[in-house]
């Protein structure tokens, strides 16, 4: 049941798959290569309005256009019933899992080591500043930036807090963008950090949270964890290597 990548030029297959999925009623597309023939399987739901050309004909033409090898197309018609709709698949199970808690209780690295966690992002109207509060074990650090810098300000404040916790790198905010909303209405923000010392100087991070600046701070933590993964994840938990900075206890 393990995934088997199809032996085919992926660029071409991406285009083919996208075009097939654009046909009316197509729900799923699968590919397999056997005996040098590209087998395409489409699952199509019965729809009232059909294109002027039958799906098997359209699909065969599209597949032939994208593939250098012979193509076979299997179209599986499917009519959903009421009984099908609300039930999760019986064979492919799902588990309801809560997202990581806001206090970062579950923010751990791949091997279970603790990572810096976001406590709060505060905007201070009096000083027109934005504060990002991070904690690592019982070490707490605050990073500050100008509030009118928006998302980038949240990124810069998070970087400042990470530095205060002793993170051994010095990235700078390249950009930060709101990408959209999750289905539970949290804002999704992507950030790019640049660190010239690294082999791959750009690292991207993505996170969702209740507000754009909270999401930007979380996305910055996410991106930071990609810089010198071993160093950051390995060293940060040990206090003896934490640099003294604007720490609070």
């Amino acid at each position: 049941m393990n995934a088997r990548p199809v032996d085919q030029r992926m660029d071409s297959l991406d285009d083919l798959e996208l075009e097939l999925r654009r046909l009316p009623g197509v729900l799923a597309a699968g590919f397999d290569v056997r005996d040098d023939v590209l087998h395409v399987q489409l699952h199509v739901v019965e729809v009232a309005e059909r294109a002027d050309m039958p799906i098997p004909v359209s699909a065969s033409r599209i597949a032939a256009r994208h593939s250098d090898r012979p193509v076979s197309v299997e179209v599986v018609g499917w009519q959903p019933t009421e009984a099908d709709r609300p039930q999760p698949p019986a064979l492919v199970e799902t588990a309801a899992v809560e997202p990581p808690s806001a206090n970062g209780e579950h923010d751990r690295g791949r091997n279970g080591e603790p990572l810096a966690q976001l406590l709060a992002v505060l905007t201070l109207p009096d000083t027109d500043e934005l504060e990002v509060h991070l904690v690592l074990d019982d070490e707490r650090a605050v990073g500050r930036a100008a509030a009118d810098s928006g998302l980038v300000g949240a990124v810069e404040a998070t970087i400042a807090a990470l530095r205060a916790l002793g993170a051994p790198f010095e990235p700078r905010a390249k950009w930060a963008r709101v990408l959209g909303e999750t289905i539970d209405k949290r804002t999704v923000v992507a950030v790019a950090l640049e660190c010239v010392d690294e082999e791959k100087p750009l690292r991207y991070g993505l996170a969702a949270d209740a507000s754009p600046i909270d999401a930007a701070a979380r996305a910055t933590l996410d991106a930071s964890s990609r810089f010198g993964r071993v160093r950051l994840r390995g060293l940060l938990p040990h206090r003896d290597v934490l640099a003294a900075g604007a720490r609070e206890r």
Partner: peptide, 25 residues
């Protein structure tokens, strides 16, 4: 893996949007 759907996975086509894994994640 872009693999074709097997007969016993037909339920996926009517499933609500979500992530489905085997075993349950």
């Amino acid at each position: 893996g872009r693999r074709p759907l097997r007969a016993d996975e037909k339920e996926l086509l009517g499933a609500a949007p979500g992530l489905y894994t085997r075993p349950a994640l």
